[in-house]
Design a binder for these strands. Structure first.
Length: 851
RNA sequence: GCCCUCGUGGUGAAAUUGGUAGACACAAAGGACUUAAAAUCCUUGCCGCUUGCGGAGUGCCAGUUCGAGUCUGGCCGAGGGCACCA
């Protein structure tokens, strides 16, 4: 038997694809385009299983669409600016550029080994001046449009990475990369005015019907639009502060107000400058901080001021508190407290013995409706509220109240967003330089076009405090007009790099422009974007913003959303192994029975088997893709990574699963060779056999139908099951000696074609061993074979399945009933019984209701 | 606390619109072939009794329906997101 040698055959086909530029594409107006894009990798060193899964999914889709006749753009590049390069370089005295380029070379080789259908002529790397020079132009373009500004403000300062983090990059009060506790620091920073597009970004979500709802919802919550009312409260007790502004979404509960709460960062805090008690309270607040869990448990705390606020509706006087649950950066940093209808306010009121006056009662409640420990936030009607009484909550009450408040000049309608502007300044070397300079008066000047790009200096000393670029005095010098100026030394957040790379792929080799309109008009939007859900907010929201920012004040740019379809794949998990606090990798442990694990080099040491978790270097539960390619071949790895779970869910790596995928490849190859001998060799005599031909026609068309459906719907795990069905069917045919007809041969070719996207190397080889051309056509489905000549009909009595009946196709109800009555096994259900009702579902089921 | 998603055999999972629950695989047990192993193939997989059949069965409890994994309501559990966001 001729064993399948994946090593030579995979190499062979990868070479063929490379030499023929098989996946190189250009605009072809005669063809429909399909732009398939997977999130590009950060070149950290080697690819990991997450990449394998991500790129396999995209590759199967791309190859399928190509066979379907689409002009498929499937590019790859490198998100190559960023801190790991700088940190690694610092540590080992290297240049970030060298480190990055070496990693790219390694990972590119690895990706090629996976057999991806990439147009490598379009490869891009964001750290190359060829890429970032365009980004600098876009920065200036956005600056001209007023979408970029500089302001001094408090920033999230990561003391380990010595850089500024965006709000989104602060997770639980810690830097997303370093894990260090983030500090507050005042700095001059560059901002993108993403909030200008708050509404558009929100509304755009509704049109993205090929995005997972989960992601859309996360973005919606992140943008956090709320509708309410801005209110002015008169303040007594201090000459300087006569008024405090509040934002509320529940103006209709204003009659229930019993205190006013402001943030400790509110301007009125000035009154308490130097007050020891207040300082103590303030530092207490910052201890509970703005960070999650700890805070959610934290008690509601207040600091009573000497100020009095007047309820604008009835001049009722209420106390003013500083409160730890009010944040300065949302609304106006002040809220009115209505304990009856807000749980936080209620907890606060109970603690400080403040009045609790209900003003909303559920319908059908009496006027003595009382609030105890739980605030009432449900629907109902307004009461205890003078001229607001009787309004229906919430539909009528909020709008009507705002109307009334506006008429009385007390407040006005207001829409508030949670979204904040995107701070893009980073005090790092390894990023895109910001094309801005400052003259001696510290005025902001754009770097003129003829001085672009501002290239990063190379081979500089990175082991300095703060931003290495600050120390590059020569590099900083730039002459603008007649003025000696200094370059901005901040570089751009790397999320800027990835906010437009999908446009660059359309014109990857255009030296003059970042993209050409002609190219993006044809290729954009990305038809299918595939990546991890961890980018649901950051990257995906920034990319949407950047696209809208380019579109802003630009009639020629006609794209408003970059990604038409989005698919978020799950993670690759593996069990973890641990002794005490030391992690061990899967190849350091072994097990005889699959339950108890011991160290390989010391079998007396029992290993604790932990939960299956997402593969990570720190837990050492990783499997190296390259070792898998070498052991089992790329096709088998592709097959396995798709097989076990639906792609949107996490998948558990399993050695036995991997081995069985390998076995599938081997046994299919063997079977193929037998089929080739029987059907495709010159000496083989093909016959005609109506029974066999019918059977193979039905099977082939049905399986192609299933595979096509599953491809279109990302049910890739089911496709693998379909492949097993194919093997099982063909193998049964072999055993039953049915592989001998001309029709069989035709069908077998079709079957090979639909298997090609998943197993491109082996199937290409299979097709070439039977001297057939690998054409670019996905087989048509012959619908005649989708409906069978006969059907298995379920026979039910009173809704219970009592048997099956094989009937001719489209049998009419009366004939079917006759058939059922004839059968012995059904007689016991019909004897002495009256048929009350019959439900017949054509070709599927008949249900008798009997008495 | 709020919002979202998901609960199907020993395991990973299938089941386009309500219409044969458990496809396909992994693991296990038994068997066939073989001197043996590998490979391959077959059978079994909840409960009850004799082959055969009957019963229960998709987290739990109700409901709608001739018929519910699928629809509705309530509960329990797991995962994810957001957060004192007014």
């Amino acid at each position: 038997m001729n064993r399948y040698n994946f090593k030579s055959i995979e190499k062979k086909w990868q070479k063929v694809w490379e030499e023929n530029s098989s996946f190189k594409v250009d605009i072809d107006l005669k063809k429909k385009k399909f732009y398939c894009l997977e999130m590009f990798p950060y070149p950290s060193g080697k690819i990991h299983m997450g990449h394998v899964r991500n790129y396999t999914i995209g590759d199967v889709l791309s190859r399928y669409k190509k066979l379907k006749g689409f002009n498929v753009l499937h590019p790859m590049g490198w998100d190559s600016f960023g801190m790991p390069a700088e940190n690694a370089a610092k540590l080992n005295n290297l240049d970030p550029k060298d480190w990055t380029e070496k990693n790219i070379a390694t990972m590119k080789t690895q990706l090629k080994k996976l057999g991806l259908s990439i147009d490598w002529d379009r490869e891009i790397s964001t750290c190359s001046p060829e890429y970032y020079k365009h980004q600098q132009k876009f920065f200036l373009d956005l600056y001209d449009k007023g979408l970029v500004y500089r302001k001094e403000n408090y920033v999230n300062w990561d003391p380990v990475d010595k850089t500024v983090l965006a709000n989104e990059q602060v997770i639980n009060g810690k830097g997303w990369r370093s894990g260090a506790i983030v500090e507050r620091k005042k700095l001059n920073q560059w901002f993108f005015n993403i909030t200008k597009f708050s509404d558009e970004l929100l509304e755009g979500l509704e049109k993205l019907d090929e995005w997972p709802n989960k992601v859309k919802l996360m973005q919606k919550n992140w943008i956090g639009k709320s509708f309410g009312c801005e209110l002015n409260f008169k303040i007594e007790g201090n000459n300087k502060f006569k008024e405090i502004k509040c934002f509320t979404t529940r103006p209709d509960t204003l009659f229930g107000m019993s205190f006013l709460a402001v943030s400790v960062d509110h301007p009125i805090a000035e009154i308490y400058n130097g007050d020891k008690e207040f300082e103590k309270f303030k530092s207490n607040c910052s201890k509970t901080g703005t960070t999650e869990e700890s805070i959610s448990q934290a008690e509601k705390l207040g600091f009573k001021t000497n100020l009095i606020a007047l309820n604008p509706l009835n001049d009722e006087k209420v106390p003013v508190y500083f409160a730890n649950f009010v944040l300065m950066d949302y609304g106006f940093g002040a809220v009115f407290g209505c304990p009856a209808h807000d749980q936080r306010d209620l907890d606060f009121a109970n603690k400080y013995k403040l009045k609790i006056k209900p003003v909303v009662k559920p319908l059908n409640e009496k006027d003595d409706f009382k609030i105890d420990k739980i605030a009432y936030t449900g629907p109902g009607e307004i009461f205890n509220s003078d001229f607001l009484n009787g309004l229906v909550v919430p539909n009528e009450s909020i709008l009507k109240t705002i109307e009334i408040l506006e008429k009385k000049n007390i407040g006005k309608k207001k829409i508030n967003f949670r979204l904040k502007d995107w701070g893009v300044s980073r005090q790092r070397y390894w990023g895109c330089p910001i094309p801005i300079a400052y003259n001696s008066k510290n005025e902001i000047l754009k770097v003129p076009q003829d001085k672009l790009p501002i290239k990063l200096p190379e081979k500089i000393n990175l082991n300095v405090n703060g931003n290495p670029l600050d120390h590059q005095d020569e590099w900083k010098k730039i002459k603008i007009g007649n003025e000696e100026c200094k370059l901005e030394t901040d570089t751009l957040d790397t999320f800027v790099d990835s906010s437009w790379y999908f446009l660059r792929f359309c014109s990857a080799n255009n030296k003059e422009e970042g993209f050409s309109l002609k190219d993006i008009e044809y290729w954009m939007p990305v038809d299918q974007y595939i990546g991890g859900v961890e980018h649901a907010i950051l990257h995906l929201l920034y990319s949407r913003f950047f696209t809208k920012a380019l579109d802003f004040k630009n009639d020629k740019f006609k794209i408003s959303e970059p990604f038409k379809g989005l698919f978020t794949q799950g993670m690759v998990c593996h069990q973890t192994y641990k002794i005490d606090n030391t992690w061990y990798s899967p190849d350091e442990v072994s097990s005889e029975n699959g339950k108890d694990f011991y160290l390989k080099n010391d079998s007396s040491k029992k290993v604790m088997v932990g939960a299956s978790e997402s593969m990570s270097k720190s837990k050492k539960n990783t499997i190296d893709p390259e070792i898998m390619f070498e052991t089992y071949g790329a096709d088998a790895v592709r097959f396995f990574i798709l097989s076990d779970s639906p792609p949107e869910k996490d998948v558990q790596w399993s050695d036995t699963g991997m081995q069985s995928s390998y076995k599938f490849v081997q046994k299919f190859w063997d079977l193929h060779n037998e089929i080739r001998d029987k059907l495709f060799l010159e000496k083989s005599k093909l016959t005609k056999d109506n029974g066999i031909d019918e059977e193979i026609n039905i099977f082939t068309n049905q399986i192609i139908q299933k595979i096509t459906f599953n491809l279109e719907n990302f049910h890739y795990n089911v496709i693998i099951a379909n492949f097993h069905e194919i093997y099982n069917f063909l193998n049964t045919c072999k055993i039953e000696k049915k592989i001998k007809t001309l029709i069989f041969k035709e069908n077998y070719l079709k079957i090979l074609k639909v298997m090609q996207p998943v197993l491109p190397h082996m199937i290409s080889e299979c097709i070439s061993t039977i001297n057939e051309k690998i054409d670019t056509v996905w087989p048509e489905i012959d619908k005649r074979y989708l409906s069978k000549k006969s059907n298995t009909i379920v026979v039910q009595f009173n809704g219970k399945k009592r048997g099956l009946l094989e009937c001719e196709n489209d049998i009419n109800e009366d004939n079917l009933i006759e058939l059922v009555k004839k059968r012995d096994e059904f007689k016991k259900y019909l004897n002495d019984k009256e048929i009350v009702r019959k439900i017949y579902v054509k070709n599927k089921l008949i249900n008798f209701i009997v008495k």
